[in-house]
Amino acid sequence: MWPLCLIVPVLRNYYIATKVVLQQLLGRSFLLPVLPQHDGKVAIVTGGAKGIGFYTSKHLARLGMHVIIAGNNETDGNEAVRRIQQDTLNEKVEFLFCDLASMKSIRNCVQNFKARNLSLHLLVNNAGVMFVPEGRTKDGFEAHFGVNYLGHFLLTNLLLDILRKSGTKDFNARVVTVSSATHLNGQLNFDDLQSSHSYSAHGAYAQSKLALVLFTYYLQHLLTEEGSYVTANAVDPGVVNTDLYKHLWYPGRFVKWTTGWLLLRSAEDGATSSIYTSVSPDLEGIGGCYICNGGRTKSADVSYDMELQKKLWIESCKMSALPVSA
């Protein structure tokens, strides 16, 4: 029989997901407004080959952006590029290899991007893993924490100099980070951020999504202090019908397989808040927000704790071998 410390995160996540699904079914879905063209602007979308990331990339390409899909599967990435180019008639879509489970790969990705001498107006931190069995990244970090959070923390920090140069007073560069309502269930245990004791996939996932919100808010704090024309916002896509659910408990997988098409948002619908936050004039120069269903929403109370944000930032700098900046 599983100990209570492993069962509770599962029940809490299912409770949160059920509430969100009911809100989706009973509420009004957010419809994207007509968005301005962004010809000549450059975007990087992690995990842009499938699911929410694919439809985010596709819409950005339709708006005229030069879209770079960053991912760890070259076959899927190139196929996504082909489909987006064909559907949008925008040839400026390409794939760039980036394995978020490897800090070496992330650094190589950034080095390869910088060698192109391109600007960068938008970074969408979209990729992630969910409820995976206990495992470690190539650098020894718990998989959810390492891929969902720390990989994006490092990637963002390594690209900040280009984002700063690309942003202007009238057109800020943007960092958009995809979190989840499950961050409400997240807890940061600084004595065991890698979930080495009593591993819970649901608890580890929730922790990584809370870390992304804390990271977003503190990043915006630092950007505001230095006067950079860069904004950072977090996005909640809702409960979306994607391939990420393959590690659910069997009852959850059964419900998803049989009724997911009816109860859950499609990946295209799930991408709307990411797209809106990435390019809408409504959010020009506005950062430090949690966007859900196209509107600014309150995140977990703990996510606004600046001391906690700062503590996580400092620890993350140390873990990713970056100079500590706080």
Rank of each mutant, 00 (worst) to 15 (best):
L32D: 07
H66N: 07
V147L: 03
I84L: 10
V42L: 00
L22Y: 13
G47R: 00
G53D: 12
V20C: 08
M103Y: 10
I52V: 09
F97D: 00
L26Y: 12
Q23N: 15
I106G: 05
I52E: 02
M130R: 05
V147P: 08
G135W: 06
D87V: 13
V34L: 12
A115N: 10
G128W: 13
F95A: 03
L123K: 00
L26F: 15
K114H: 11
D39A: 10
V42I: 09
N78E: 15
M130A: 11
I106F: 01
M65G: 01
K104Y: 13
L96P: 01
L22E: 03
L32Y: 09
L22F: 15
T88K: 04
M65Y: 03
L25R: 05
N117H: 14
G71F: 01
G40M: 08
I106N: 01
I52M: 08
P33V: 08
N125E: 11
A70C: 09
G27D: 12
G51A: 13
R107I: 05
L118Y: 11
M103R: 14
V124T: 10
V45Q: 09
A101K: 03
E142Y: 09
L120T: 02
K58Y: 08
D39F: 10
L22R: 13
L96G: 05
E94F: 02
L100S: 07
V110P: 00
E142L: 06
I52D: 01
I84S: 05
A101W: 01
K41T: 03
